[in-house]
Computed example of a mutant assay.
Amino acid sequence: MSSLADEAPGPAAAPAAPAPAPRSRRLWGVLQGIALTVGLVLLVGGFVLTAVEYRPSFVPTASMSPTIAAGDTVLVHPLGKAAVGRGDIVVFKDPQWGDETLVKRVIGVGGDTVVCCDPQGRITVNGVPVTEPYLADGLLTAQPSGSAGDAGGSLAGVAQQQLHQTFNAQVPAGRLFVLGDNRLGSLDSRVHLDQLAGSIPVDGVSGRVAATVWPFGHWRTASRTTAFDALPGPAAGQPGPLMPLIWAMLAGTAVIVLVSLTTPAAAVVRWARRRR
């Protein structure tokens, strides 16, 4: 006959402690965290610096076509202490030209003599002919009379005539002579020659165009032109930090996406191994 002690159930077995994750899995988790942190720093840091360094500006007219089309949005890099050089595409405002913010290319700086034109229709600066590769094919500054529009319409009367006249402009110190790349449809220094040789003040320049960012199909950086490098004095500025910032943001995005995909991929691999 068994005793009650013999029949009493023994103490319940303690649940087994969960097996520690393999060391390789823990190491992989740490590496994932580091990679995600690096990706976020590149993405967020690049975006913040771009927002701080650049300002968007809308271009409503075709005066800078084909370099910048009507309706494009460009990013503008403030000049800071950098000097404006010949060939720079600048954003400026001059009360003598109206209240609008304008975008033109610098052709002459203070002290320059800008003349239209040599027998080939090229602008000369201080007697040196300038070949401008950014102009529309076959379009030079000297053209036969015709109709063109700064905003898609017709330029009428004296403004239209001034676009096709020859000129000899002496640029005063501290000022700039600017033209649009669309020489048949840009209201620029040529139509203000009676006001300080059509020049604008350097202080009126808010920045240099760094890139076209919208519409997306027009996206491109504003490459530095070498058209004026044969001339002594300030030439077009070097590109700003926009491209390194863009590459940083792209790299950060790629790292975040790739690391995010590794977790479900690893789960699928482990599931497949258990099924074997």
Rank of each mutant, 00 (worst) to 15 (best):
G80L: 08
F58V: 14
I68K: 00
H77Q: 15
A70V: 02
S57C: 03
L79V: 10
E53T: 02
T73K: 04
T50R: 03
E53D: 13
D72G: 07
R55Y: 08
A62G: 13
V59A: 02
E53Y: 13
P78L: 09
V76A: 06
A51D: 02
M64W: 02
D72M: 01
S63V: 08
E53W: 10
D72N: 14
S65F: 09
P56T: 12
H77C: 05
L79P: 01
A51H: 06
A69F: 03
T67W: 01
P60D: 04
V59G: 00
A62T: 04
T67E: 11
L79I: 13
L75V: 08
R55D: 15
I68F: 01
R55A: 15
G71Y: 00
G71H: 00
H77M: 09
L75W: 06
F58M: 07
V59E: 03
A51E: 03
D72I: 04
E53H: 12
T67I: 07
H77P: 01
T61F: 00
D72Y: 04
A70L: 03
S57E: 15
V76R: 03
A51M: 09
D72T: 05
P56A: 11
P66Q: 05
V76T: 10
V74K: 04
T50K: 05
S65L: 04
Y54W: 09
V52A: 12
P60M: 07
P60A: 05
T50H: 00
G71Q: 04
Y54A: 11
S57I: 06
A70S: 14
D72C: 05
R55E: 15
L75C: 10
A62L: 05
R55G: 14
V52G: 02
P66R: 01
V76Y: 02
S63L: 03
P60F: 06
D72S: 12
V74Y: 01
S63F: 00
V74D: 12
V74N: 12
E53K: 09
G71I: 10
V59I: 10
T61Q: 02
A69M: 12
H77S: 15
P78K: 01
T73S: 11
V52D: 10
R55C: 09
G80Y: 08
E53L: 14
L79T: 13
L79W: 01
T50M: 14
